[in-house]
């Protein structure tokens, strides 16, 4: 997102590339700066529409579900920000390489979890709450409620920040439980015991494990 100008001398080539991508992002921006609440609504409705039409997705085809999420949902998430927030104070201790690996593994884990959650979608109704924010805000919470009978609605809060390429989700709270905050203690424990590489390794082995139910400890 932001290039650190302090230690990089821009060569002509980089300059040209920069202008090119700058223009490109300006172009996509026109398409992607939907208001955050509209964005969440459109994506949610599109995804559940696709699931309700697809028998394979309903019967729990994990691979297909992951593809759907990769295509429709992931572009609207800022995984680097999510990983940074979950790793918290240890983030600065990680090298650039480690940061990249951490982000990739965490991303895979979240996608798997998310696909597992979506597979249990039946035909709940969604209630998209009106956005309470000023037009100038760059950090908002979009609220969605899942209505179910005989139980109180489940709230989904998407914390979103405005970026050059549209609004991006950097945390998601399910019934008040922040995904990012919930990983913080686990990550901190792992890093304290086995270092940043230990956390990368345990995330990787978790991701390689069997999909539906992990072994008990």
């Amino acid at each position: 997102m932001n290039v650190s100008l302090s230690n990089s001398r821009l060569s002509l080539q980089q300059f040209v590339l920069g202008v090119f991508f700058g223009l490109l992002s300006f172009y996509t921006q026109a398409q992607e700066t939907l208001p955050p609440d509209t964005l969440v609504k459109n994506v949610t409705l599109e995804v559940i529409e696709l699931i309700s039409k697809d028998k394979e997705l309903q019967s729990g085809n994990q691979k297909r579900m992951v593809e759907l999420i990769e295509a429709k949902v992931l572009p609207h998430f800022d995984f680097t920000a999510m990983t940074r927030l979950a790793v918290a104070t240890n983030w600065d201790k990680a090298s650039a390489e480690q940061k990249k690996l951490l982000t990739d593994e965490f991303r895979t884990l979240l996608v798997r979890t998310y696909s597992s959650a979506l597979a249990s979608y039946r035909d709940q109704k969604f209630d998209f709450r009106p956005l309470r924010a000023k037009p100038t805000d760059t950090d908002v919470t979009v609220q969605v409620r899942i209505i179910q009978r005989g139980a109180e609605p489940v709230t989904l809060d998407y914390d979103m920040a405005k970026s050059g390429s549209g609004w991006k989700v950097y945390d998601m709270r399910v019934a008040g439980v922040s995904l990012v905050a919930n990983y913080r203690t686990e990550f901190a424990n792992e890093i304290r015991n086995n270092g940043v590489d230990g956390l990368i390794k345990s995330l990787a082995s978790k991701n390689k494990g069997p999909a539906p139910r992990a072994e008990r400890k």
Partner: peptide
């Protein structure tokens, strides 16, 4: 099932979720 999928250490994950949820 989702919890199995999500957690590195189920005990910690459940505890933190419980405390966040109650709050």
């Amino acid at each position: 099932r989702i919890l199995e999928e999500a957690a590195l250490d189920k005990y910690v994950f459940e505890r933190d979720a419980y405390l966040q949820r109650r709050r």
